[in-house]
Design a protein around this nucleic acid. Structure first.
Lengths: 71, 71
DNA sequence: AAGATATGTCAAATACTTTTGACATTTTGT
DNA sequence: ACAAAATGTCAAAAGTATTTGACATATCTT
C-alpha cells in the first residue's frame, strides 16, 4: 500500500529519526515503511497519522486490486 | 485498540462469515478482532472500513496511553 | 424440540511486522 | 573538501496477525 509519509514528514521538517521517536519505533521501521518494504501495524498507522497531523486514510492510499495480495 | 466492527456489522445486517468473505479473510479472524484478541493489519482495517462503509478512523478508536503497550 | 445458522474458542503452522546492531551511501552545512 | 547528519540496507531474533480444522455453545426458525 502506498503512503505519503515521506512527503508529509518533510513538510513538517522532521527526520526519519524524529518521526521514529515520536511514534516510539525504530528509525529502520520508519525507513522500511517509507520505502514500501511492508505496511505498518494499525497502531503504528494511527501514531504516524497523529505525528503527521492527518488522518490514517489521508496518509495511506488504499487501492485494493480485488482479491490480489499486496506488495 | 477498541473498534465498532460488531456494531456496524450488525447495523448492515451481516454475519461474521459475510464480513469475512467480503474482506477475504477467515471467520475466525473477524471474530478475534471483534473480541479484541488482536488488531487487524492495516490492509484489513481498510477492507473492513470499505465493507462497513466508513473510514478507518471511524471504525477504530485510537487512544494511545502514551508509551504503554496496547492489549 | 429439533435443525439450522451464528458465534466463541483452541492449537499449530505460516506469514508479516518490528527490533537491534552494524555498516554503506547520500545529502547538508561550513 | 571535509565533517556531520540523514538515509539505505542487511541479517537474525522476537513479537504479532492470519489460517485451517475442529468442536462447543448460543441464537434463531419452524
Amino acid at each position: 500500500m502506498k503512503n505519503r509519509i515521506r512527503e508529509m514528514r518533510k513538510a513538517i521538517g522532521l527526520s526519519q529519526e524524529d518521526l521514529a521517536s515520536g511514534c516510539d519505533v525504530s528509525r529502520q521501521t520508519i525507513n522500511a515503511i517509507e520505502n514500501n518494504k511492508y505496511d505498518p501495524s494499525l497502531l503504528l498507522a494511527f501514531r504516524l497519522a497523529e505525528q503527521l497531523r492527518c488522518r490514517v486514510d489521508e496518509l495511506f492510499i488504499y487501492q485494493d486490486n480485488p482479491e490480489a495480495q499486496q506488495d
